[in-house]
Nucleic acid binder design. Structure first.
Lengths: 218, 218
DNA sequence: ATGGCAGAGATTGGATCCAATCACAACCCA
DNA sequence: TGGGTTGTGATTGGATCCAATCTCTGCCAT
């Protein structure tokens, strides 16, 4: 997610995805090809290809002759995306665990310590994602990991909006879940790790779903 | 999956996807932009956009300056795709069931009767897919259904190769599983339906995994 | 005979230009 | 005054052209 590709299409794709994930381009916002081409450098052609890719990833939606915009998700859609995470991420974790090294878990714990030391909203989102992705490094299946990243990407905006509007309130819950997850991983306890991960995602889903103010119709 | 779009890009995308799913273009085969443009009508531009979309779907892989080809999956990759189906399709089924009408189930049973009446390999693949997708019609979540369709698409070649090389041998097993699934749906038994579906996908995964001749290195 | 190398043809990547469609505003008429 | 209509600017869709990279063949040297 961090490597910068050489081709123009790859570069524009990378930049656009980053702008959507960072919130610089929010849900409902329109993406004009010429604007993007001028802003990111290049002609409209690589922009169109990048938009096609983003559309297949679910990060934008393209309507024929009417252009691309960032989709506005309602509560049910975000809920389903989280239900998908609840099903797929334990699978990735179980696949990853046998190949996970002690230093992988060390790195994850270092991230957790930074989270507990106190960070702002934007840093938390980045570190939380890094931590979870680190636990999946042993899973080298492209399709599974690509699907999981898509699920994170599609819900990124709502996670950030939730955190910025006060967040979960009880930070210790997240930390306890992370610690339990990492401990289970350390012990090679696949089932335990899967259960803690499931509970972690499930609780987040429920908190997001009850934050109705995130999903007011526009 | 069957509607023919008006735009050139959409038409080419639809045709290319169909050719890959039908086996007209097999794994490892290269896709030259100019060939496709000449064959399907249009310039290379819409072809490139269609290839980008197919790449994001996992139906082709694009290497910079080297073009697109249909990916060759090994046994582990197909296995993981099926494990993903085992996780996601019961979710789609549970979401679908409350909105499923009696006539939906009637239609699915009609398909099952056609399968039992005896069909060739290609018809079976089509009907089997139609049957399962029918059971998901009540699930109107775009992302979940798109992900499931991608999983079917990515594994379509190996399913067909398996069927053509003798298949499961015991056709009654599939029919029993389908009947049990449909019966549970008829009774509104969500848990039972999920279990039968899981068993159905799981058995297919195991049979495919043990058919090593499908995955010889090239 | 075999391995490396060079060059020509093939193929992809990108830019510019033209056509088609859409959105919006001004205008006309009831 | 309000609603429909038409026309113009804005935006997207598609085609052709040029540049960059790759591939593959044939040649040369060892």
């Amino acid at each position: 997610m961090t490597e910068a590709p050489a081709s123009t299409t790859g570069r524009i794709l990378h930049s656009l995805r980053g702008e959507i994930l960072s919130g610089a381009i929010g849900p409902g916002e329109r993406l004009r090809q010429e604007d993007i081409a001028a802003r990111l450098g290049g002609s409209r052609l690589p922009v169109r290809e990048a938009l096609r890719t983003l559309a297949a990833e679910g990060l934008v939606e393209i309507e024929a002759n009417k252009g691309a915009r960032v989709p506005v998700l309602d509560r049910d859609e975000v809920q389903t995306l989280y239900l998908m995470r609840e099903r797929l991420e334990p699978l990735a974790l179980a696949t990853s665990l046998p190949r996970l090294t002690a230093s992988d878990i060390d790195a994850a714990e270092a991230i957790q310590e930074r989270i507990e030391a106190g960070v702002d909203v934007i840093d938390f989102l980045t570190l939380d994602r890094e931590l979870h992705m680190l636990t999946y490094t042993g899973c080298n299946d492209e399709q599974l990991m690509a699907t999981i990243e898509r699920l994170w990407n599609s819900t990124q905006h709502y996670r950030r909006a939730f955190m910025e509007s006060g967040g979960p309130g009880r930070a210790w819950v997240i930390n306890a879940e992370h610690r339990l997850l990492l401990d289970a991983l350390r012990q090679g306890d696949s089932e335990g790790a899967e259960l803690h991960l499931l509970g972690h995602i499930r609780r987040t889903r429920r908190e997001l779903s009850s934050a109705l103010h995130l999903f007011v119709e526009e």
